[in-house]
């Protein structure tokens, strides 16, 4: 009877794991792709995420809820990936770590909403790549993966305040970028018109 129970247990673990795979593979891939901007890399990262989680299960740990755990592993792998690349942008990001105090304005969720309302989502998405990863990470988690501030704070191992500030700042940067782009486009258009006139 004991043997049967354990096999049941094992098959139960397997089914739960595969279920989680079916449920989250797309979301994880999306997140990874936006972060690393490389399709194959993103797939590899998702694969590694699942194999790591599987190994974790094999070690006898229990996973009550797969989603935050998967995101955590994925996030760590993405950071590893950045480290491997040793890109300048990362160094730049690291430098910015110290300024995360945040004003009252930046800490309020409602102001985030007000701010977000002023941004064109479609344009913003295309500009996500240009965002420093520190901001990109939380914005993706917040608006693409639809995680709550608390979940995000657990994931990135920062306080909720810091997460809120990052989201706020990220959105601000996005707006600036959109505005700059718009301005640039406007200028180009005007210049073109001028040129046409001449």
């Amino acid at each position: 009877m004991a043997g049967k129970e354990t096999t049941d247990n094992v098959s139960d673990h397997e089914t739960r794991f595969l279920k989680a795979f079916e449920e989250y593979n797309d979301a994880l891939f999306r997140h990874a792709l936006i972060r690393v901007s490389n399709r194959e890399k993103a797939i590899d990262i998702v694969h590694d995420t699942f194999t790591k989680v599987w190994s974790y299960l094999r070690d006898g740990y229990e996973i009550d809820s797969f989603r935050p755990f998967l995101y955590k592993v994925l996030n760590n792998l993405i950071i590893d990936e950045y480290r491997k690349r040793k890109e300048a942008s990362l160094d730049a990001l690291m430098e910015m770590e110290g300024v995360d105090e945040g004003s009252f304005d930046e800490l309020s969720e409602s102001t985030v909403e007000v701010l977000a309302a002023t941004i064109d989502g479609k344009k913003a998405f295309d500009l996500l790549e240009e965002l420093p990863d520190q901001y990109r990470e939380v914005i993706i988690l917040r608006f693409v993966d639809q995680l709550g501030p608390k979940e995000i704070s657990e994931l990135v191992e920062e306080t909720e305040n810091i997460v809120s500030v990052r989201i706020h700042r990220g959105l601000k940067i996005l707006r600036q970028k959109i505005e700059a782009k718009d301005e640039y486009a406007e200028e180009r258009r005007k210049a073109k018109q001028k040129h046409e006139k001449i």
Binding site: I34, A117, G121, F125, D126, Q146
Partner: peptide
């Protein structure tokens, strides 16, 4: 906010694994 997150989401959902990749 809603508009932004919806737009972002719609845009994001276009990003997914292809059947073969999956």
């Amino acid at each position: 906010m809603k508009r932004f997150s919806e737009q972002l989401k719609i845009k994001a959902e276009s990003v997914k694994l292809r059947a073969a990749e999956k």
